[in-house]
Nucleic acid binder design. Sequence first.
DNA 1: TTTGAGTTTAAGTTTGAATTAAGCCGTGTG
DNA 2: CACACGGCTTAATTCAAACTTAAACTCAAA
Lengths: 225, 225
Amino acid sequence: MKVLIVEDEQYLAEAVAQVLRKNNFDVDISLDGEDGFDNALSGVYDVILLDIMLPKMDGLTVLRELRNEEIFTPVILLTAKGETEDKVVGLDSGADDYLPKPFKTEELIARIKAVTRRRGEFRNEDVLSFGDLELDPLTFVLKRGGEKYSLTQKEARLLEYLITNKDIMLSSDAIIEKVWGYDSDAMDSNVQVYISFLRKKFAALGSEVRIKNIRNSGYILEYKA
Amino acid sequence: MKVLIVEDEQYLAEAVAQVLRKNNFDVDISLDGEDGFDNALSGVYDVILLDIMLPKMDGLTVLRELRNEEIFTPVILLTAKGETEDKVVGLDSGADDYLPKPFKTEELIARIKAVTRRRGEFRNEDVLSFGDLELDPLTFVLKRGGEKYSLTQKEARLLEYLITNKDIMLSSDAIIEKVWGYDSDAMDSNVQVYISFLRKKFAALGSEVRIKNIRNSGYILEYKA
DNA sequence: TTTGAGTTTAAGTTTGAATTAAGCCGTGTG
DNA sequence: CACACGGCTTAATTCAAACTTAAACTCAAA
């Protein structure tokens, strides 16, 4: 499995490379955006780990240019904390995942596997579904039967988080960390507002999916006919 | 919430401890690596704040040894600035987060919460069961066969206490101490009310589980087929 | 510069969990 | 027998959490 790391902090790149090599990955490193772009163009990599802050060409530009060139190698963005907006922009511009620094290597490996597996299996079809609803986390389109509804980014990411943890109760804090970002100072009321938005859109679609609140604890998805 | 601070700068350790105590944390301090390791071995802490530069045994060694000993208490590394290398190595050796010094106490608290919560998230569904009933103590959902019922927090905690002591008779006083808290001034009538609520919900589910009262003594769960 | 979608903040309202209070029932005792 | 006590249930109250709505703000696109 070939991995390209595009990361200007040489030490960090080497450290990650070392760990990956121990796990039988074949790793190359680019220290700036241009070099990374050139390497990635070859299309030989199974996955690209892409830093956002890079000399010569920033990561998001690299990503966009690659997709322009019809290179659809899976990309995992490495975001420094505080780049919350970048996360969103990144996913929007065609990244497959992002990983906030610092990260555990197990998590990195898990995501690499997830991202490559996904590609192998369904390429296009990573639609999330729960009950009678379907969410396309890339286009933020929510469907029920034939009817569609457009969600905003926040709504979509909140719903995505709820669906991917459908059996787990999620606290407001956990939701804020995941949807608003690690360093966000968003308050519970934000979550409340967006939960409310989602419920309204569920109702508009006539869905049987409910977002249940558990007092003093959190939220969980429910579906019953 | 019990926190262990392993930090050789005594004044810094005390300062942090003081702030944490104000936030209702129960804080212990170790001033060198060996002592920290010994304390951490007890496994009673919910999170460990670990300095890297330490007398007798450095933080990373402490961490590695702990993981060797199957102690998986979440660890937040405290790194002096410029210890970038340590960050990576540290995360690789099983730390859950790192925090560069100097840090704001709000941030420390936020990370402690994040790290302990994460642990809670992927804790496996430890569903309690008794007779024909199942209780998820996280979501307060009570099940019998396919049918579900939502309990309130108090109901769930009362039932949890009853189930985990299914062979023991529990006095009202014991129940109050456990469910309402040792400093509560709740009365027996309170317990009665909640016992009644539970029985009603058992009946609604058609369960064969009974809560038996023993006059002047207490309550105990019964199941008869 | 204006516009508007998306998001955040803030205010007012609703909900329901927890408590309290009141009355009923059954059992054991004088 | 009756009446007192422990236990049970239901009804009324309370108050913080959760919800909704609307207005304010932000920022990118026109």
